[in-house]
C-alpha cells in the first residue's frame, strides 16, 4: 500500500535524531533522540514545562523543529532533499499526507463541536483519504464500538462527558489508520472518575499492537502499557529504559527525585 522505503521487521518505525526546538531565545528541546519500534508503546514522562508536548508536537510538525530529523519508516517528516542535495520543507499537501499517518490525541480532546460524534470520526477518512461516505460510516461505527460509544454516534460532542469525548477523539485518531498514535496527556483534563475508561481504551490499543507515544502522568499506565519510558527534564532525556527500572531502580538522582515526587502526589490522594 505504501510506496515509501521498505523497512525490515524490527527496524524502528519512528526515529528522532537530535531534535532541537527553540521559541525565540528559549531552547525548549536540546537534542532529543528516540527510536520507536513497530507495536512499541513509549511513555514520555517529565515535569510540567520539561518539553513533553513540544517534543510530541514536533513529531507531526505542529511545531517545526529548529534542528534534527524525524523519520517515519525511513521517510523524513516535513522535509525533503532535492536532487541537488538541498533540504527544504515539504509542500503543505505532502506534509498533510504524512500527518494522516501519525494521528494525535490531545489533552483537551479538540472534537469539532459542529459535527456529530460519527461526523468527527469520518472526517479524516472522507476528507483526507477520499473514502466513500458510507464506507467511512461503517468504519466509524466499528471504531466507535471499539471505544464503547456506538450508541452515541449521532450525538454532538457537547452532550458527552469528558471521558466519552476523549474516547471519540481516540476513534477519530484511529480512523485514518495511522502508523503511530501520539497522545498528549490524554487524561489530564478529566475528572478522576473518568480517567479509567480512557486508560482502558488505550491499554486495549497497546495490547492489539498499536504503536504509541504517550505523554502521561499516569504512572500505573506507564508501568502496565509501556515497553519503554523516557524521562524528560529541561528539554533533554535524562533517563530511559524499562518502566520498572526507570521508576524504581535507576540510580539517576533526577529520576529518583521525579518518581519520589510522583509517588508522594499519588499517596496524597486526589488533588
Amino acid at each position: 500500500m505504501n510506496a515509501g522505503p521498505t523497512v525490515s521487521a524490527d527496524a524502528p518505525l519512528l526515529v528522532v535524531e537530535n531534535l532541537r526546538k527553540s521559541f525565540g531565545a528559549h531552547e525548549v528541546l536540546k537534542g532529543v533522540s528516540l527510536a520507536v519500534k513497530p507495536s512499541q508503546v513509549i511513555g514520555l514522562l517529565g515535569r510540567s514545562g520539561s518539553g513533553k508536548s513540544t517534543l510530541l508536537r514536533c513529531l507531526n510538525m505542529l511545531e517545526v523543529p529548529s534542528a534534527g530529523r524525524i523519520l517515519l519508516e525511513g521517510e523524513e517528516i516535513g522535509f525533503e532533499t532535492t536532487a541537488g542535495g538541498r533540504r527544504r520543507p515539504l509542500s503543505a499537501s505532502r506534509l498533510a499526507r504524512q500527518r494522516a499517518s501519525m494521528s494525535m490525541v490531545f489533552q483537551h480532546f479538540n472534537l469539532w463541536p459542529h459535527r456529530t460524534v460519527l461526523g468527527n470520526v469520518i472526517e479524516g477518512p472522507v476528507q483526507v483519504l477520499g473514502m466513500a461516505k458510507d464506507e467511512a460510516e461503517a468504519l466509524g461505527l466499528d471504531l466507535l464500538a471499539r471505544v464503547g460509544l456506538r450508541e452515541k454516534a449521532e450525538s454532538y460532542p457537547i452532550r458527552l462527558s469528558g471521558g466519552q469525548q476523549q474516547r471519540v477523539a481516540i476513534a477519530r485518531a484511529l480512523a485514518t489508520r495511522p502508523k503511530i498514535m501520539l497522545f498528549d496527556e490524554p487524561t489530564s483534563a478529566l475528572d478522576p472518575e473518568l480517567v479509567g475508561e480512557v486508560l482502558q481504551v488505550m491499554l486495549d490499543l497497546a495490547k492489539s499492537g498499536t504503536t504509541m507515544v504517550v505523554v502521561t502522568h499516569e504512572m500505573s499506565f506507564a508501568r502496565n502499557a509501556c515497553e519503554e519510558v523516557v524521562l524528560l527534564e529541561g528539554g533533554q532525556i535524562v533517563e530511559r529504559g524499562a518502566p520498572d527500572y526507570v521508576m524504581t531502580q535507576s540510580e539517576n538522582p533526577r529520576a529518583r527525585q521525579f518518581f519520589a515526587s510522583q509517588r508522594q502526589e499519588n499517596a496524597g490522594g486526589p488533588a
Binding site: S101, A173, T176
Partner: peptide, 10 residues
C-alpha cells in the same frame, strides 16, 4: 490542530 493532525490540507 485537530484538523491538521488527521491530515487535512490548510
Amino acid at each position: 490542530e485537530a484538523g491538521m493532525s488527521v491530515g487535512m490540507k490548510p
